[in-house]
C-alpha cells in the first residue's frame, strides 16, 4: 500500500483550478509581451546556425502544453519547428 498516498489529500477541485490557472497564465503572459517569443526565436537561430543552415522564414516556435511521460501530468512546453537546409561541416562528426 502506498502510505504516502494514504496521507496526502486526494486531488481536490482547488488543486485542479490552480494547475489549470498556472498553465493558462503561461500563455496569457507570453501574449502580453509579444517580443518574448521573438527573443527566444532569435537566440535559437543564433545557437543552431553554428551547426546547420536553417530556413529562418519557416521557423515556428510556440508555447503549448504536453503530457509528461513520467506521470502523465500536463506541463507547459516550448515547441520549435526548425526546417534544416543542410548541415554545416562543424556539425558533422
Amino acid at each position: 500500500m502506498d502510505l504516502f498516498k494514504m496521507f496526502s489529500k486526494p486531488d481536490n477541485s482547488k488543486d485542479i483550478a490552480k494547475e489549470r490557472l498556472k498553465l493558462v497564465l503561461i500563455h496569457d503572459r507570453a501574449n502580453v509581451s509579444p517580443q518574448f517569443l521573438e527573443m527566444i526565436k532569435g537566440e535559437i537561430i543564433n545557437v543552431i546556425s553554428d551547426y546547420m543552415e536553417i530556413d529562418e522564414s519557416g521557423l515556428e516556435i510556440k508555447l503549448t502544453r504536453t503530457k509528461r511521460d513520467s506521470d502523465n501530468s500536463t506541463v507547459p512546453a516550448l515547441v520549435a519547428n526548425i526546417p534544416i537546409r543542410k548541415m554545416k561541416d562543424s556539425g558533422k562528426v
Binding site: K9, N12, S13, K14, D15, A17, K18
Partner: peptide, 10 residues
C-alpha cells in the same frame, strides 16, 4: 477548508 476553493496562498 474542504479544498474546493483556492486559498490565499494559492
Amino acid at each position: 477548508k474542504r479544498g474546493d476553493m483556492m486559498n490565499i496562498d494559492d
